[in-house]
Write a protein that binds this DNA or RNA. Structure first.
Lengths: 203, 203
DNA sequence: GTCCGCATGTAAGTAGTTACATGATTCA
DNA sequence: TGAATCATGTAACTACTTACATGCGGAC
């Protein structure tokens, strides 16, 4: 999903500034599927404003820099709905760099493979602990009362996303924990630049 | 993983043309983590050649267009290994458009949510059937005997990738099948442009 | 007194997608 | 005869990342 659409999604829950949208991408349920730095968020907000999908209002703050608070417009809501309705079933391929590395496990140093798997197991455990620990509904970053009104408990979306993430990460973790021994055992048995590789066979 | 590195990975298994690399991305174990059309593969091969990581040889064919067969060089092998060693534990976030849509399930038409989930369930089932049915080792697309020599059975990488993919897709499928009823039941209960949404609350 | 958080934005560069351009063979 | 497969490449465009630029307030 492109940054413009994810910004629109955040703003559908309530008004927010560019900085707050960034936080929504880093923490909370949006962090499971959205990404983007300031370098993509701010230009996206400018474009969305020009297209009439959102509008911005300056808000002065005491002892803090001014904020540009963006609100979604009716056109923006319609655009979000139409974007959501055109989601295609494909394109949910696993694109994992770790998997790419494991494909070549036999050709890489055993210690390296072991360390990479352990690091990933740790990452999954932390991720899962964090996801199980927090029940935030998606609008935790939003200060406006409106967000709370819309997202408090009754809305099931955030819970689905959270539980889906937990299910998938748990499966990945289980796999790595179970297969770690076998993968490490066969790792490094065919070093790429030594005897017995395709390079030699071809010559 | 960028296209240059994935091309290098395919070529580490044996010589191939740009067209054959494309096929490797579409079918076989590479399809689980690699992507790229001709528009990215051919420029990548040109760059890799200039960097001395691969070299190309023209091969004439009867009744077929000429092929440019690329071979990985020793420098290319080393580069691939160093790329694989710098894989970071992060960045394996689930970035799913379906999940993004389900986050807003309560605000979208019930029939649409049901159809989208069913389509995805079908996609997962097909994907899993295909993955379970084929035991290809990653070099199925390569005509050279060397690929067979390198990848026949003894190499565990392709199997790990395949089994990891199966585990993760199965978890995602199980979740959708179990939660389908609940998700559809709460879908469409809060249409975005009608009464009771943030839009109204803000006004 | 130095680093972190709050806050907004631009500029340059990287990487990838989509469409275009060509042309023979083979199969239905 | 029309579509699919084999085969290579370029050009224009889109989208995103990284680094730069600025500046105040509060915590340690």
């Amino acid at each position: 999903m492109d940054v413009k659409t994810t910004c629109l999604g955040v703003l559908a829950l309530g008004p927010a500034s560019g900085y707050e949208i960034r936080k929504a991408f880093e923490e909370g349920p949006f962090s499971h599927f959205a990404e983007g730095g300031y370098g993509s968020i701010y230009p996206a907000l400018t474009k969305l404003t020009k297209e009439g999908l959102i509008d911005g209002r300056k808000e002065e703050q005491a002892k803090r820099p001014d904020k540009n608070i963006y609100h979604i417009t009716e056109a923006g809501r319609q655009k979000l709905v139409s974007s959501l309705e055109t989601v295609q079933p494909a394109e949910d391929k696993i694109k994992s760099d770790l998997l790419f590395m494991l494909f070549f496990a036999d050709f890489l140093p055993r210690e390296h493979i072991a360390a990479a798997i352990d690091a990933r197991i740790g990452w999954y455990r932390e991720k899962l602990a964090h996801m199980r620990g927090c029940m935030e509904t998606g609008a935790a970053h939003l200060s406006q009362p409106v967000a709370g009104a819309m997202c408090s408990g009754a809305t099931s979306g955030p819970h689905i996303v959270r539980d889906f993430g937990i299910a998938v990460y748990q499966a990945a973790l289980d796999f790595l924990e179970q297969e770690r021994g076998a993968i490490v055992a066969s790792a490094g048995t065919k070093p790429m630049t030594a005897t017995g590789t395709a390079q030699d066979a071809a010559e």
